[in-house]
Design a binder for these strands. Structure first.
Lengths: 111, 111
DNA sequence: TGGCTCTACCTTGCGTGGCAAGGTACTGTG
DNA sequence: CACAGTACCTTGCCACGCAAGGTAGAGCCA
């Protein structure tokens, strides 16, 4: 039985990434670091980089290289139009899903 | 890119099953049918039966055979003590996870 | 110059778990 | 005695999270 947090992340992680670059372009290592600060989402490079490639491949993210003030160049990611739609779609799906789980699993009290 | 609903289910489905047998013993086909009524959770036999076996194997569910009023015998599932603990643990994890996602992905407005 | 560390990128290989499809067997019913 | 209905379970495939491993430029310091 896998780690609970790991399987919970499934399906939401990619949209958390989309949301993270929604208002500002970000690069890989930065995204990893930011997720690292969220105990519920902490995901390593081995998760994030393949995820970013996948999102690029399906056309939800776009990327461009930029110099770093110090260190190797960075690949900055930005949301595409399709990415924006996908994120919007997720938001409605998520609310609905969350409510279903709350109702079925609930707090253990009532029905 | 897998179906959105499918990956959302990951990690929560098994606990929805636990919650479903929390107050009353249920059998496989019944569980499949009940999930079928939830658009967000709809899962087929191919998902539920292996899941039930897994939950039995790790000791969260217990089962006993019982005659059906009409048709072949049914295997009824019940929560074990460990299952109850696991469910309780999930409930706190879930609340925390849900809040994190709400905060990060939000509704698209505000920060 | 050479060597060390830091930052940044990416890949490989494994394991878990959802699911469609396929399979077995018992129980009525005409 | 065939046929439909109910109930159980397995096989094989694919997606994806992740630990571990790999490459390379930048900055520093002697």
């Amino acid at each position: 039985m896998a780690e609970l947090a790991t399987s919970l992340r499934r399906g939401t992680l990619e949209f958390c990434v989309l949301a993270m670059v929604e208002h500002e372009d970000r690069y890989g290592t930065e995204i990893v670091r930011r997720f690292g600060e969220e105990p519920n989402l902490a995901a390593s490079e081995g998760t994030i980089y393949p995820l970013l490639s996948r999102l690029r491949r399906v056309g939800w993210l776009d990327s461009k290289w930029a110099e770093s003030p110090s260190g190797p160049p960075r690949r900055y990611y930005a949301l595409t139009g399709d990415g924006r739609s996908a994120l919007a779609h997720f938001r409605t799906e998520w609310v609905s899903f969350r409510q279903t789980v709350d109702r079925l699993v609930g707090t253990g009290e009532a029905a």
